[in-house]
């Protein structure tokens, strides 16, 4: 037997015992499992950063071309005030844009679920909305609606509402036919079928779609700002790039990444609250 195969049952056993110890009263073991789950990602990122740092040091490439990660960190910290001032409008526009997107996606998905006519009418439009080249549309939105909130909200909504709407529509439609038959045999109205089966059944599919969409949301906001804005990480990157401050561009990129990952993680937290029953199947 190889050492790996002899060790793995032990590891499984310890993981099980840790999991069974997880309870609201004992947060410490929960933190251990979280750490254990994050460890591989942290290791890989650390390795990549080390490699990057070594490459920059060894080749002596100019920082305007490629700054070292330590320089990015150092300059990012030095300009933390500016980064924060520009991150806030980005967060704000992302939140508003995503809220609009979610509202529209839910409204359309529910309408489509109740009306086969609307499904046929709207599906091509939904697909078309996703094939619009945002690169071309975003500058037009700025021309039409100026440098305020509206064009950015529209860009975010445009890039994020499609995955959410499709996730919901397919989640509703994936309802087991026999579950529908059971509800109908109980005399359930279409609204009751939706409330008791289609809606809760679609939630896992919704959260999967939400995770895809939320990563688009931040990049959508950055892109919209890149095209034209008074403040925000997008316009910040644009300005720093023009001044050959590659390090600050990358610092802003890092902030964007952290923001996206935080929002991504937030979806899991919300999902646990909304669909606690799904947790068991999820692991």
């Amino acid at each position: 037997m190889s050492p790996v195969s002899t060790r793995s049952p032990v590891r499984t056993a310890s993981a099980v015992s840790t999991r069974s110890a997880v309870s609201p009263a004992a947060p410490a073991p929960g933190r251990t499992t979280l750490l254990r789950r994050l460890a591989p990602a942290v290791l890989v990122v650390a390795a990549l950063l080390t490699l990057w740092q070594a490459a920059v040091t060894l080749t002596g490439v100019r920082p305007q071309v490629l700054p070292s990660p330590l320089r990015v960190l150092e300059q990012g910290w030095a300009f933390r005030g500016a980064l924060w001032d520009n991150a806030l409008p980005t967060i704000q526009v992302t939140a508003i844009g995503f809220a609009v997107s979610l509202t529209v996606a839910w409204a359309i998905a529910i309408a489509v679920d109740f009306s086969p006519w609307l499904r046929r009418a709207l599906t091509p439009l939904l697909v078309a909305s996703q094939t619009l080249p945002v690169m071309a549309i975003a500058p037009l939105l700025i021309i039409w609606f100026g440098f305020g909130l509206l064009p950015k909200v529209l860009v975010i909504a445009l890039v994020t509402f499609f995955p959410v709407a499709v996730g919901l529509i397919e989640g509703f439609a994936a309802t087991d036919r026999s579950a529908t038959a059971l509800l109908r045999s109980m005399g359930a109205s279409r609204l009751q079928q939706f409330r008791y089966v289609r809606l809760p059944g679609a939630l896992p599919s919704f959260f999967t779609a939400l995770r895809v969409a939320i990563t688009y949301a931040v990049t959508g906001a950055i892109f919209a700002e890149y095209v034209g804005a008074r403040a925000g990480l997008g316009i910040f990157m644009q300005l720093q790039k023009n001044q050959f401050r590659t390090d600050l561009v990358l610092a802003a990129v890092a902030v964007t990444a952290v923001l996206s990952i935080a929002l991504f993680g937030l979806t899991y937290a919300v999902q646990r609250l909304v669909t606690p029953w799904y947790r068991g199947d999820h692991r």
């Binding site: 087991d176 026999s178 045999s185 359930a188 089966v197 809760p200 939630l203 669909t275 029953w277 799904y278």
Partner: peptide, 24 residues
Amino acid sequence: LMPQQDLLFPWRTVLDNTTLGLEV
């Protein structure tokens, strides 16, 4: 009607699954 599959819904407790018809 009791269909072939049990069709108990994971988002409801066992008790609330059994009351579904009454709620409807």
